[in-house]
């Protein structure tokens, strides 16, 4: 659990400024929802924080460290992707064990950790099932368990409940909020759904409010 600070980040793709002097700060253990319309640069901001995309300008700080130049795997930032990105050639429990395995845990430890997380997301019985056989809601829970089992300092959620039917969406939103609070992990959630943001997050921030630049340097697009 660490403080997350994004300071004055700008990302330019070709002629298009996707993020313009974006700044946001999350207290340790805080859950913040970033809302904005599709294509507004929310996912780009998450990719910058995760280290998947280097910013053209600006800084990302986790705790007291400037991690802007730190490679993704050393940042301690976990991310749940919109389409989950589960490893289809692995079983459910192997997916969840992946993070602990990368952090050097013994086989017994990572198995215990993965089993515990699968229990917490209610999928104990699915441990040996192929992830390709899971429903949308089950896959989403596995993706969340896989991210949290890696014990990241910061968790990023990229439109985590998009594509689910309304009933499942609402149920998972409540479950997700409970899991994140019990894990006590600093979380930035991006969504275009204000209700989802209100259910899960401690506070909601509009992407348009992240622009910390003077008005005469407004973004060209995005």
């Amino acid at each position: 659990m660490s403080r997350l600070e994004v300071c004055d980040v700008t990302v330019i793709f070709g002629e298009t400024t996707v993020l313009h002097h974006a700044s946001i700060s999350l207290a340790s253990g805080e859950i913040v929802a970033l809302v904005g319309p599709s294509g507004s640069g929310k996912s780009t901001l998450l990719r910058v924080i995760a280290g998947i995309l280097p910013p053209d300008r600006g800084q990302v700080r986790i705790g007291d460290l400037d991690v802007t130049a730190t490679p993704t795997h050393r940042r301690g930032v976990g991310m749940v992707f919109q389409d989950n990105q589960l490893f289809p050639h692995m079983t459910t429990i192997e997916n969840v064990m992946f993070g602990p395995k990368m952090s050097g845990r013994s086989k017994a430890e990572r198995s215990e950790q993965a089993t515990r997380w699968l229990h917490r997301v209610g999928l104990d019985a699915f441990a040996d099932r192929s992830v390709t056989d899971l429903s949308g809601g089950e896959a989403k829970r596995v993706a969340l368990a896989r991210t949290l089992a890696a014990e990241p300092a910061v968790v990023l959620l990229d439109e985590p409940l998009t594509g689910l039917d309304r009933e499942l969406h609402d149920r998972l939103a409540v479950d997700l909020a409970g899991l994140l609070r019990s894990a006590n992990v600093t979380t930035l959630l991006v969504t275009h759904d204000a209700d989802e943001a209100a259910t899960i997050a401690d506070r909601t921030v509009a992407l348009a409010d992240l622009d910390s630049a003077p008005e005469d340097t407004a973004p060209t697009a995005g």
């Binding site: 995760a50 998947i52 795997h73 991310m79 990105q85 992946f98």
Partner: peptide, 8 residues
């Protein structure tokens, strides 16, 4: 990228 965010 997902594997990298898990520490790989």
């Amino acid at each position: 990228a997902a594997a990298a965010t898990l520490g790989a």
